[in-house]
Amino acid sequence: MTEKQHIVIKGVKEGLVFLLDDQCPYDALIEELQYKLEKTHQQLLSGPLVHVHVKLGSRRLGEEAKEKIKSVIRAQGNLMIQSIESDAPASQDEQGADKLQVLTTIVRSGQIVKHDGDLLLIGDVNPGGSILCTGDIYVLGALRGVAHAGVEGHIDAIIAASLMRPTQLRIADVISRPPEEWMSGDSAMEFAYLSEGQMQIDKLSQMHRVRNNPIMFKYKEV
């Protein structure tokens, strides 16, 4: 263990914070965690009960992987895990930006576009055509077909379109057929989002109220 350390253990008021590096491979992390707990940090383990917070940085882990970390730490009798978390907001933005795909095409009747992440479609979605995304959907064009954002249950996903004339909108597992009042004569850009489990439509200029964009708060503070 002479190379760069992937795990930093800090003492805070409430107990210990394990800062795990988010760039190195997961296996290396586990190995080092085991090594540290068993070999180098013995002094931690002999004493009263200590609360532990694990911070994963921007790394995303499934339940199984989290469980593995928990079991390694729990193996030492006196460490009690309070939380395992990734720094959510910042990393989500980064991830969103990474996964935004730009697609220039017309989605015609009978065609389905599937995408993992956010999608920016430059072109129309015609009636009978569908877009399915795990993230947000932005259509620079007319949305006349079906759009399903947050396919895997992400209820914060939105659907935005230059011309909102969908046959059906779906966000996570909420399905909405546009009522007549959506079909307002004005062709303002609109977006759909979920508010308390209900589909809502609003002008695109109102999006900042739904999405409390962290960058905007930073500017306010300055």
Partner: peptide
């Protein structure tokens, strides 16, 4: 007619 336009759209997709 809407139905004819819908089918035309499908066919245009296949031709593309």
């Amino acid at each position: 007619e809407n139905s004819a336009v819908r089918d035309a759209d499908r066919v245009i997709g296949l031709l593309e």
